[in-house]
């Protein structure tokens, strides 16, 4: 009876995913059909309503993984190692989508798909650094070593997040400075904000499910029978 309860899906992540889908449906409908085109970018500016929310949430997911790395190294609880893995995987997915959306937006506006501008370069570094950490986790068999190494690597790779943020200020770049409510027409706020919450809810639901998956794997590899868990920790 206990086991059946364990294997039932948790409800909260599904509520969040549903909420996220609703927000994204409304925000994208508004962004695609209701909001006016931009004065110079025309219709193409509508890509902003997915691109900017993706950027915010990608950095948020990676920041969550960074916090998990610190907590894991503090208390050694593998629950945080599972959450770190979840945050990185979802963060990498969003960072990849960010680069693709950016390229699709850049072609009709800047005139090129890609250039090695500081913002684009540091974002690509972020994507590949965390992709590397996911690969590292695949190749390290020992869960304790895997946990420590990936937490250390996450803390080091995280320096790139403030660098991505400041890249447009520190160096001259093709990518524009951060927008603010003052530089964006109020007609564009609704799709931007609704989609930002949409991706936030969706991402949170995904991270919760993904962390659960990682925890189930931990249970299988670290502690085949649950009572051996203590000894497995001791051996490390």
């Amino acid at each position: 009876m206990h086991e059946t309860a364990n294997n039932r899906y948790p409800v909260l992540p599904f509520i969040l995913i549903g909420l996220g889908v609703l927000c994204l449906a409304f925000g994208s409908y508004f962004g695609l059909f209701v909001a006016p085109p931009e004065r110079y970018m025309g219709e193409v500016q509508r890509i902003m309503y997915v691109h900017v929310p993706t950027a915010w949430n990608a950095l948020l997911a990676i920041t969550f993984a960074f916090v998990c790395a610190i907590v894991f190294l503090f208390n050694g609880n593998f629950k945080w190692d599972a959450r770190l893995e979840a945050g990185i995987e979802v963060g990498v997915l969003l960072a990849f989508l960010l680069c693709v959306q950016g390229a699709i937006w850049a072609k009709p506006t800047w005139g090129v798909w890609w250039d090695w501008d500081p913002r684009l370069t540091t974002t690509a570094v972020l994507l590949f650094a965390f992709l590397g950490i996911l690969a590292l986790r695949k190749f390290v068999e020992d869960p304790v070593k895997r946990g420590i190494w990936s937490a250390v690597a996450t803390i080091i790779a995280y320096v790139d997040v403030p660098i991505v943020y400041f890249s447009v200020r520190w160096w001259n770049s093709l990518h524009q400075l951060q927008s603010s409510p003052a530089t964006v027409s109020s007609q564009f706020y609704i799709p931007l904000r609704v989609n930002a919450f949409g991706i936030l809810f969706l991402m949170t639901g995904f991270i919760m499910l993904r962390a659960r998956l990682a925890s189930l794997r931990h249970v299988n590899e670290i502690a085949p029978p649950p009572m051996m868990a203590e000894e497995a920790g001791e051996l490390a």
């Binding site: 994204l24 994208s28 695609l32 004065r39 110079y40 970018m41 025309g42 219709e43 193409v44 509508r46 890509i47 997915v50 691109h51 993706t54 997915l93 990849f96 989508l97 693709v100 959306q101 699709i104 937006w105 072609k107 009709p108 506006t109 969706l202």
Partner: peptide, 22 residues
């Protein structure tokens, strides 16, 4: 003119790839 003409295919591609991948 300095204004991007059309280009909805880029918008559909960006939304399609994003939501498809998610």
């Amino acid at each position: 003119s300095g204004v991007v003409q059309g280009g909805m295919e880029f918008v559909w591609a960006a939304y399609g790839i994003t939501f498809g991948a998610l």
